[in-house]
């Protein structure tokens, strides 16, 4: 069910994205930060699911909130002539790697030690996104 939703969503999103008008280059910087924030939320959500502490509200608010907040921060940084988007990228990408590490360990333990449902994920500090 969820996998169908993911595949369907990706297909529809691809169609929309292909047919949408092009945005101007000056705004693409904001969009890039928003995408990074959203991806971070997605990976956070996956790792939280694996940890069985996934919360839908936190996920939704994190997904949209982080994106909007990062855009606002980037805008503010441009006004202040400080590259705040660098800080946002560092934080989000760092967390993405973190979450990816959690996901990797979960599956490594699951397949190698043949202990299917034993909750032995050594998440360093799992984000609840």
């Amino acid at each position: 069910m969820i996998f169908i939703a993911i595949i369907l969503g990706c297909v529809i999103g691809a169609l929309i994205g292909v047919n949408m008008p092009m945005i101007s280059y000056s705004y693409s910087g904001y969009l890039a930060i928003a995408i990074i924030a959203a991806l971070d939320s997605v990976f956070g959500g996956i790792s939280a699911t694996l940890n069985k502490n996934f919360d839908l509200k936190i996920f939704v608010t994190g997904f949209f909130g982080n994106a909007i907040l990062s855009i606002l921060l980037t805008y503010l940084g441009q006004k202040l002539n400080v590259d705040i988007y660098l800080a946002a990228i560092v934080v989000f990408v760092g967390r993405m790697f973190n979450n990816l590490a959690i996901i990797r360990r979960y599956y490594i333990e699951k397949f190698s030690k043949n202990k299917p449902k034993d909750d032995k994920v050594e998440g360093n500090n799992t984000e609840k996104n």
Binding site: I2, I6, G17, F59
Partner: peptide, 24 residues
């Protein structure tokens, strides 16, 4: 709810990412 949310999130994320790719 999770399915719907994931669906929407996928749409938003993929479409925005493709827009960005095209723009770049």
């Amino acid at each position: 709810a999770v399915t719907v949310v994931v669906f929407i999130v996928c749409i938003v994320l993929v479409s925005v990412m493709l827009m960005q790719f095209r723009t770049v």
